[in-house]
Simulated scan of single mutants.
Amino acid sequence: MPGRILVSLDIAEPEDAKGLLKSAEELAGLRKDELHVVTVVPTYSMPIVGSYFLPGEEGKVLDRARQALKNFLSEHAADPESVKGHIVHGTIYSEIMKAADNLNCDLIVLGAHRPELSDYLLGPNAARVVRHARQSVYVVRHQ
């Protein structure tokens, strides 16, 4: 039975995002799944960060992210019409898990760089999703 796959892309890292999208499309094709692509715009809620932006700037950032994701998918997705893009706003790992739950996905596809010492101490977003998501998680290593 076909399911739904959620792939989280950082479109600010286009080379990594292209490879990750390709991997997710291959998995979706093998499984005959619906593919959802999510990009997380981090929140400005911390006062130290938010104080650098004018009122209403977050909305503009979200609009630019929506357009950037749409452009990215139209250029790099094998079948752009079949891929559903989503922009979410907040804490990266939390928003990925919320999106997967809200979209009833059964698999999350994430990219991860080779771990560095700080990753072992702080726990990267991919590690948090792997530990806490209700769905299975497929991690694609970036070089």
Rank of each mutant, 00 (worst) to 15 (best):
E15S: 12
E57L: 01
H36A: 00
T43H: 13
R128P: 09
E58N: 04
Y93I: 01
C105D: 10
K98A: 04
H86D: 02
Y93P: 03
A126I: 01
E75Q: 09
G111C: 10
D101Q: 14
L20M: 05
P115C: 11
I11Q: 09
S118Y: 14
P47I: 03
A78G: 01
E34C: 00
N71D: 11
A112Q: 10
A68F: 08
I5D: 00
G90C: 08
M97Y: 05
V38P: 08
S82F: 00
Y44D: 15
L27Y: 06
K98R: 15
E13C: 14
A24H: 13
E57H: 02
P124K: 12
P80N: 06
P14I: 00
V41T: 05
H36T: 01
L103K: 01
E116V: 15
L121G: 09
P80W: 03
L73Y: 04
L69S: 09
R128N: 12
L9Y: 03
F72V: 00
S82N: 10
K18W: 08
E116W: 07
V38C: 09
Y120L: 15
E95L: 07
L117E: 14
E57V: 11
S94Q: 14
K70A: 10
E57N: 00
A68W: 04
G50L: 00
S51V: 11
D16C: 04
L30G: 02
D79Y: 10
P47H: 02
L122G: 10
